[in-house]
Design a protein around this nucleic acid. Structure first.
Lengths: 231, 231
DNA sequence: CGGAGTTCGTGAAAAATTTCTCGATTTTCG
DNA sequence: CGAAAATCGAGAAATTTTTCACGAACTCCG
């Protein structure tokens, strides 16, 4: 009952994280919301023309419909210092967020389920740039096993556990059909996976200490439909 | 500067919606957060065994790590009445949320960009169940044009505008490469699209009145990486 | 060099969201 | 039937998040 879970929808206990030491004056609890905002800044800024050196908080704010004060507070949180009348150094924002979130450090992952969505994720360019390293692909379909997707050979799920025990990735990306998701998730945890990024439309039940992020793709449709109402 | 935009990250002006009439005692402003929670309940409950007739708020809460009071408040918002000691009628929850969000009513959509992600979205089963109707597929790649994906023939983007003007879908799902996203988005708006569900990792800039939901897939990685820290 | 115009940084205020409390209601079961 | 257990509903309290306000810092230019 205390599994650490998050999803875009779940707003339950938003405190994440509870152990470990971090560098000076970085707070213990950072919420879901803040983490997403930081990541958003990061992804956006990383695609800017590298010639753009300075970014002001009002500018960044206008990109995301956030208040500029909010941007400054977020940046202060990760430890970026700005310069009055000029803004913040782009590189420094990126470095600080990267370090704060821990992007690019030991982010090995396996993808489980290489259907359409799974293979889209394997090939997703941003993942690599963000430091996410796909180290293995698993699927049950005999027709897929042995074939390669984006340079990775698909292995049978029967070999998943041993692979994970040997290679020790900490992240698993679940993109399998709903009816096997829970079982596979449990196997992943047994094999030592620490975090599950779940793209299958189920809400997984997993033991404490395993971090789950449910990425239900269709959640967004609610907002769109609502917005289109009375029509 | 006042384009209505939302994304999982953007927490700016969270008020959506501003016109139109809705049935009795349904409030004017419903936030992003609430909409996502409602949708989450919906997706989850719609997959339950239909034999399960009653759902209690503590039960539903435990599924999503939300407080049970929160669940009751959310359900009260959409107008579901519960029964003490028993809970809420599953069907009634689904109906109310469906009606409240406007799922299944006039949700025609085109998908623009039929790469790996695009074709995953075309085939996404939940979309259909939620009432989202894919009516057209567009891509620029000459090798794809004319071929069919999940029963839909891919048309060239050059024919996109005329198609939309004729068929009048209100939603466009963008799953194209970043460098064409902004241009295509603008064309979509010109052709009469009301809402853009953007799966390409850019933050679109569009005129007022167009609803945009940016579904940056990699946003979730920030939270996962952060959680895995100190390691 | 000095004034106009930006933007930072931060503490305080406002708004919102979430959680708590508790009486009332309904079913179950002895 | 009456007590026990579970849950709803709603107002109040606590917490979190966002926005406001403003002094200080810095750049640009005439």
């Amino acid at each position: 009952m205390k599994q650490k879970t998050t999803s875009r929808t779940s707003n339950g206990p938003r405190k994440l994280h509870s152990t470990g030491s971090r560098s000076r004056k970085m707070p213990r609890h950072v919420t879901h919301t803040v983490l997403e905002r930081l990541m958003h800044y990061y992804v956006c800024l990383s695609k800017y023309d590298p010639n753009i050196e300075w970014i002001s908080s009002p500018h960044l704010a206008s990109q995301f419909r956030v208040d500029d004060t909010q941007v400054r507070k977020d940046l202060a949180l990760v430890g970026v210092k700005g310069r009055p009348n000029t803004g913040f150094r782009r590189e420094q924002i990126l470095d600080s967020i990267r370090r704060f979130l821990g992007l690019g450090r030991n982010l090995d992952a396996v993808i489980v389920g290489v259907g359409r969505l799974g293979s889209a994720l394997v090939a997703y360019r941003d993942f690599r740039e963000l430091g996410l390293n796909i180290v293995g692909l698993f699927d049950n379909d005999p027709r897929k096993i042995g074939t390669a997707v984006s340079g990775h050979t698909i292995l049978p799920t029967a070999r998943m556990k041993s692979f994970i025990r040997r290679r020790k990735p900490r992240i698993a990306i679940l993109a399998c059909p709903v009816f096997v998701a829970q079982i596979l998730a449990y196997e992943l945890v047994e094999a030592g996976i620490c975090a599950i990024w779940n793209f299958s439309p189920t809400t997984l039940q997993l033991p404490d200490g395993v971090f789950v992020r449910n990425e239900h793709i269709s959640i967004g449709l609610g907002e769109i439909a609502y917005h289109l109402l009375p029509s």
